[in-house]
Computed example of a mutant assay.
Amino acid sequence: MKKLILTITTVALFLFAAKTTAQNQDVVDIAASNKAFSTLVTAVKAAGLVDALKMEGPYTVFAPTNDAFAKIDQNTLGALLKPENKSKLATILTYHVIKGKLTAKDVVAALKKGNGKVTLTTLSGSEITVVQNDKGIWLKDANGNYSMITKTDIMGTNGVIHVIDTVVMP
């Protein structure tokens, strides 16, 4: 019985510590501390957006994983990371960011109010649509492509991150 209590206490302490660590980091630091976002972090640096995304916010970031970036043709991705394409890359990345903090609960409430669909304005000034179907909640970009939200509510000091499986394009 003592081993069970010790195990439960250890797990609870670990979960609390992990949650606290994320809450003491901004959205950029959270992404930088997770290997699954290394391509995103490289792109944010190349676009010169680190300081902007470290500001007070709050922001909602739909963060594509490395696997999401791997779906982009590697020549195209390589070209976007070049200094001469900094503004184009910044436009794509800010298409993944919404001003304000939208938790999963907020998104679900907006979807209910909008009958399964809600349109959001991104930091790039473009609109992106959030839709819900029986398979989950998705982002629909301006080109009609979809990206599934695979994980929600990674809380930071200046916003929240939701993980997506495909890079969305303005």
Rank of each mutant, 00 (worst) to 15 (best):
I8W: 01
T9P: 04
V11L: 15
V11H: 02
L13Q: 01
F14L: 12
F14R: 00
L15V: 13
F16G: 11
F16R: 00
A17V: 12
K19F: 03
T20A: 13
A22N: 12
N24Q: 14
N24M: 15
Q25C: 09
V27R: 05
V28L: 06
D29T: 12
I30F: 07
S33Q: 06
N34H: 10
N34L: 13
A36W: 00
F37W: 09
F37H: 10
S38K: 07
S38M: 06
S38N: 14
S38G: 06
T39P: 10
V41G: 09
T42L: 07
T42A: 15
A43P: 11
A43W: 07
V44I: 15
V44F: 09
V50C: 12
A52F: 10
K54I: 10
G57R: 06
G57H: 03
V61C: 04
P64G: 02
D67H: 08
A68H: 11
A68G: 13
D73M: 09
D73Y: 13
Q74T: 12
Q74W: 09
N75G: 13
T76S: 14
L77K: 08
L77C: 07
L77E: 03
A79F: 03
L81R: 04
L81V: 08
L81I: 05
K82L: 15
E84W: 11
S87V: 14
S87K: 14
K88L: 14
L89A: 06
A90C: 14
T91I: 02
T91L: 11
T91Y: 00
L93Y: 06
Y95E: 02
H96I: 01
I98W: 01
K99F: 09
K99E: 11
G100Y: 05
L102P: 01
A104C: 00
A104R: 08
K105T: 14
D106A: 09
V107C: 01
K112S: 12
K113C: 00
K113R: 08
G114N: 13
G114R: 14
G116H: 07
K117N: 02
K117Y: 03
T121C: 09
T121A: 10
T122H: 01
L123S: 05
S124C: 06
S124I: 01
S124F: 02
G125Q: 10
I128E: 00
T129G: 01
W138Q: 01
L139N: 01
K140I: 10
K140R: 13
D141P: 05
A142H: 05
A142F: 06
A142D: 02
A142M: 10
N143R: 12
N145M: 07
S147W: 00
M148G: 11
T150C: 05
T150L: 03
K151C: 05
K151F: 11
D153T: 02
G156A: 15
T157M: 09
G159C: 07
V160P: 04
V160Y: 00
V160A: 00
H162R: 06
I164Q: 02
T166S: 13
V168C: 06
M169R: 08
P170Q: 04
